[in-house]
Design a protein around this nucleic acid. Sequence first.
DNA 1: GTGAATTATGCAAACGATTGCGGTACTTTA
DNA 2: TAAAGTACCGCAATCGTTTGCATAATTCAC
Lengths: 342, 342
Amino acid sequence: MGKRNITLKDLSERLGFSVSTISRALKDHHDISQETKDKVQQLAKKLNYIPNHSAQSLKNSQTKTIGVIIPNLLLDFSSKIINGMIHQSRKEGYRLVISESGHNPDLEKDMLENMIRSGVDGILLSLTNNTKNIDHILLAKEKCPIVLYDKVSEKIPCTRIIVDNEIGAYNATKHLIDQGRKKIVFIKGAEHSFNAKKRFEGYLRALKDRQIKVDKNLIPQCDTVCIQEGTKLVNQMISKRIEFDAIFAVTDDVAIGAIKALKKHNIIIPKQVAVVGFSNSKGTTIIEPNLTSVDQPGYTIGIKAIEYLLKELKLAHQTEHLLRTTPKTIELKTNLIKRESS
Amino acid sequence: MGKRNITLKDLSERLGFSVSTISRALKDHHDISQETKDKVQQLAKKLNYIPNHSAQSLKNSQTKTIGVIIPNLLLDFSSKIINGMIHQSRKEGYRLVISESGHNPDLEKDMLENMIRSGVDGILLSLTNNTKNIDHILLAKEKCPIVLYDKVSEKIPCTRIIVDNEIGAYNATKHLIDQGRKKIVFIKGAEHSFNAKKRFEGYLRALKDRQIKVDKNLIPQCDTVCIQEGTKLVNQMISKRIEFDAIFAVTDDVAIGAIKALKKHNIIIPKQVAVVGFSNSKGTTIIEPNLTSVDQPGYTIGIKAIEYLLKELKLAHQTEHLLRTTPKTIELKTNLIKRESS
DNA sequence: GTGAATTATGCAAACGATTGCGGTACTTTA
DNA sequence: TAAAGTACCGCAATCGTTTGCATAATTCAC
């Protein structure tokens, strides 16, 4: 039936108080007598009064809305992050507007502008693997606070919420070395990806620590990180007769693809070749043998991202302008989950 | 640096026109001369004028925002749906506020109220598996249009976007029967789930069509639909020495669990037992043998859900009140993807 | 050259909530 | 009895946009 929504004015007319009194009564202002407070609050409840959010936003110049841009929703890890954000923002009384850039920098730019246009208090941004030009991000940052999460860049002066990719990769590699593996393949990820780079560095450091020489033949590069790519690259190595006794892949999907290739060639896992992935996605317990993987605390990333953004919002609100704090980097711990594949 | 945002007033002061003229000039109103239009639009662009969304919402009493409630984001299927919604809403100039109810009816209720409170034009709702009481939904419906998707209920008089669960299950079962399977297990899903019920009906109809008797021993019921549950139930059947030559599970996860159990008992798939799942999730191509599954067009569900909600919004906006149209049910086609497991 | 039609612009009231500033009426204090 | 204090409440402006109506200037027809 959609009757017009109840407004303060409606309440004021029904009760004979002014609109201001109604407004104050509803928020327990000390100027208002308990008696009228009771009357007002009762009627408000009875009529199911709901304050108009747009009007409040207009007056308070804050929308209680946070924009989220994520490159790819279709990943367990992404869902976990979003989940954390949803729960934390809900707790803090904010709502989430979510967009997916599909690893397309143009879309990313567009969405950034769109969010600002549509009125958000702040933005949580995870970069495209192909984001090279960052001007639009810098520009957006002038308009509203931005916190980077997961896929970040060192060039953008924003708070960053990430995992300790380097250490995680280091531990994974060391885990393999500790088993006596010497010829450890590292399947590299996207070229401009900050995370992929860090994981590679962790791999290198572990080798160096144990004085294992880096062999370029053991470091193939993915075009796209997916199952098929892992299979393809491992097949190539096998047909080139490159020898190896372990594979550490930049991503679970790639590792799963690798396992499939190994199994096709009747290579026994982990006896002949051990495999380790990164992310601890659902597939790790579906593939056989179950995949050892570096767990990333996606849910916590979501929580922290909201937390830090809200901190900046509060500061900005107090000081009445966006301020350039020196951007912090929050690094969350990863955790190696050992399974059958290693 | 966060200078105050540019407003119409700013433009009006700089140009000497009234605010109304500026407003009209920016939207190409025919009352305004081309000359002033040009001036205004140029300056607006130069100063990067962005209309205040809250003010517009307040005036037009529409927020250009759609609320989405989903029981569980952590599923490929969910991500696909959300993806469709994101893309379609973006195309239509709406933004999406997303929440996750975690199959908790109390949360569902709370989120529904919260969305209305925070100002959305309409809501896309997928029910909890445990939603028995629907009063809060009926109540919410009085406040803003709701379209149900995926997990729906016949008791709620709203437009529904679903897949042809019954036919999909029928086809899957028939596919097994056509292979000469006679003792087909059906692993049932959640008790109050509309989809699970329909799938069961499809299974029954296929058996009936081919005059196969229903055997209650072949129809175990899940507590929760997950991998472990599938494994558990199949293990139980095996230990009870119940004979069967095929398994059709209400969900991919359950089917995957079933496969794991079969493999543990050295039962050859599909020779001795064929397996079919439902959803065509990513795991189907990870598990070995690859799982035959009923594909659900998640992305399209998302698209359609937005489309139909917007239709209702337009109608409501025209007629200035929510109207009770007889709710339509849009059923999208599923598609059986045959793989190694059958 | 008068009245009507056309064109271009401004005024002011909305939308709904918030809040500084006053203004009563009543009580307390000296 | 006057001054000061307190407890309650309302006026009116404000946030930024939109829009019906009025106004002013220009053009046209006859």
